[in-house]
Simulated assay, not measured.
Amino acid sequence: MRHVDVVLPCLNEAAALPFVLSRIPVEARAIVVDNGSTDGSAAIAEAHGARVVEVRQRGFGAAAHGGLEEATRPVVCFMDADGSLDPGQLARVVEPVLTGAADLVLGRRRPTCRAAWPWHARIGNALLAARLRRTAGVSLHDLGPMRAARREALLDLGLTDRRFGYPLEMVLRAARSGWRIAEVDVDYAPRAGGRSKVTGTVRGTLRAVADMSRVAAR
């Protein structure tokens, strides 16, 4: 994993960061992208050995892309910093990229319990994945937040969305560029520190789906 940078967009994840950073594979480098946290997340990340980058423009895509631009290693992984995903499973998404078997690999979330993935978030995700299969010919069942690809190739995609449409735009542009896209199973657990800021509420889910639908309609 010495060829891998792990980008973790972060907004008030103090409760989860100690676990998440302790599970980053040996030799991989964690890049925590602080997107306006007020709970000391940046200091906690630094204390646990992560490189911390501040991105003032609010938005998931702004944070994720800021981390991509900061990365220097050949392969870049993205994952949520809220403890819902286990960094110990990053090798599952990295290996096909390192071996050349795939160009973009997404972790297909497999909930460890019912509370991990609220019904409204699961339905919204399933509808978007079905649309991808139908319109873009991409055989995915989940727009999973744990994913990996080569850094230079990702930069060449020219991603422009800076909100919740960023993950979908990545897949769409990769598909249009002829990338080999694959998915592997990863565990999905309840996030640390309460409800997700996005999928934890119907309103948050609808906002994310709206951003992604806007990107899909381009």
Results as ranks from 00 to 15, higher is better:
L168M: 12
E46N: 09
M1P: 09
W117L: 10
L85C: 05
A15V: 09
T112S: 14
M1T: 12
V93Q: 06
A42Q: 12
M146P: 01
L140G: 03
G100A: 08
D34P: 08
I181K: 09
Y166I: 04
G107D: 01
A62Y: 10
R92M: 04
G137S: 02
G107Q: 05
C77V: 15
R151N: 11
G200F: 10
L172G: 00
G107H: 08
V53M: 04
A174V: 01
R29P: 05
V6A: 00
E70H: 11
D39Y: 02
V4G: 11
P25V: 02
G137C: 03
L21F: 09
M212N: 07
Q89L: 05
D80M: 13
P87M: 06
M1W: 11
T160N: 05
A102F: 08
A81M: 08
V184Q: 09
P87S: 06
R110V: 15
V52M: 06
L17V: 02
A15T: 12
H141T: 14
V93D: 03
C10L: 05
E69R: 15
V55C: 03
A116S: 13
R108C: 07
L155S: 07
G124H: 12
R23H: 00
I181T: 04
C77D: 10
R108I: 01
L90I: 14
A129I: 07
A28P: 07
R203D: 15
A63F: 02
P167F: 02
A153L: 03
A101F: 09
R92W: 02
E69L: 15
V138K: 03
R195K: 14
E27R: 15
R173F: 03
V33L: 07
T160L: 13
V198I: 15
A28V: 03
L140Y: 08
A149W: 10
R214T: 15
L132D: 00
A216E: 14
A216C: 05
D185P: 15
G59W: 09
V75Q: 07
V55R: 07
W119P: 01
V186E: 06
S213I: 07
D5Q: 12
A129W: 04
R180G: 12
G137V: 03
P118R: 05
R131S: 07
R133W: 01
D187N: 09
G178M: 01
L143E: 00
G165A: 10
S22W: 10
Q89S: 04
G200Q: 10
G66V: 11
G158L: 11
V93I: 13
R218M: 08
N12S: 14
G59D: 06
G144N: 08
S196V: 02
A64M: 13
W179C: 02
R23I: 00
G61D: 09
I24S: 01
G178Q: 03
A217S: 14
A47I: 09
G178L: 00
D5H: 07
G107M: 03
D156H: 12
V7G: 09
A126M: 11
V6G: 00
L85H: 11
L159P: 01
E54P: 04
I181F: 08
G36F: 01
R133N: 02
D80C: 11
G204W: 14
A189W: 12
R73T: 10
